[in-house]
């Protein structure tokens, strides 16, 4: 089993649900177990559309192609089913849920994974929450705050990482998690990803980013460049360095050709 990829994307086309303009023009990508992939691309290249289409955001629609996750057709599944089968999306813009504490939110998310007649063990939950927060260097009182309500940019991203640590997905999509973060917050995110990757060597990551700087802290196995709704270049970590040096300009002809 562990030889089969966790995620296979074939010729994926996609668009914003209410519009006719196609944004993804045939994306192909394969992610193996335990691999860390990065997709880099300029604004408007379709990176975020890919992340949202994969996670089932109702505002986005796949118009062609297929996505196999854990041997199942991902595009047929509701967002909650995708999450329960092991997919996690760290949001670029996490949403505020006033009046709902992080602890309650996580408890509800974990309870939803159990059978209807099964009750989440609250002591185990509490233990796990505390140990995950310790792993991520978080203050225990953080979990009592309402989800993202009045959070700084850095706190929101920390919260995403905590959720990821608690839900233990098989594949985490990180949608521009580094955008708008200062260097301290960036290190927190990177530390979280690295700690989880170390703890669970089977866990895979797809890191979507505009900048190379996050990749200074998280070492990807594979780097893909996305331009104009397609992956135009794939390679090892050296691709990121190449981009850093020459920018996205040099990749545009490849997209056109």
């Amino acid at each position: 089993m562990s030889d089969t990829p966790i995620l296979t994307i074939r010729n994926l086309h996609g668009k914003v649900a209410d519009e006719d303009i196609e944004i993804l023009h045939g994306v192909d990508l394969e992610i193996g177990r335990g691999e860390i992939h990065a997709i880099m691309g300029p604004n408007g290249s379709g990176k975020s559309t890919l992340a949202k289409t994969l996670s089932g955001h109702p505002g986005y629609e796949a118009t062609d192609g297929e996505v196999i996750f854990e041997g199942e057709d991902l595009l047929e599944q509701e967002p909650d089913e995708r999450s329960q089968s092991g997919l996690f999306l760290a949001f670029q813009y996490p949403v505020e849920i006033p009046g709902v504490s992080i602890a309650n939110f996580l408890r509800t998310a974990l309870q939803a994974r159990l059978d209807e007649d099964e009750e989440l063990d609250l002591f185990d939950f509490q233990d796990q929450l505390l140990s995950r927060m310790e792993l991520l260097d978080m203050d225990p009182t953080f979990a009592e705050r309402a989800v993202n309500d009045g959070f700084s940019g850095g706190e929101k991203k920390r919260n995403e990482i905590l959720q990821m640590a608690m839900l233990q997905p098989k594949l985490a999509l990180m949608d521009e998690t580094d955008s708008g973060l200062d260097i301290d917050a960036l290190q927190v995110v990177a530390h979280g990803v690295n700690a989880l990757a170390k703890e669970n060597p089977e866990m895979s990551f797809l890191i979507i980013t505009h900048y190379q700087r996050l990749l200074n802290y998280i070492r990807p196995d594979h780097v893909h460049v996305m331009v104009g709704g397609r992956i135009v270049r794939s390679g090892g970590p050296e691709v990121a360095e190449e981009l850093e040096a020459s920018g996205y300009e040099s990749f545009k002809p490849a997209a056109a050709g």
């Binding site: 089932g56 849920i97 939110f105």
Partner: peptide, 23 residues
């Protein structure tokens, strides 16, 4: 908000309840 909660594995009905209770 609903999508955010559903993307964490909560079925729509559970997500709705949580948002309403928070409100």
């Amino acid at each position: 908000s609903l999508f955010y909660l559903m993307s964490r594995g909560m079925p729509r009905s559970v997500a709705e309840r949580l948002v309403v209770m928070g409100f």
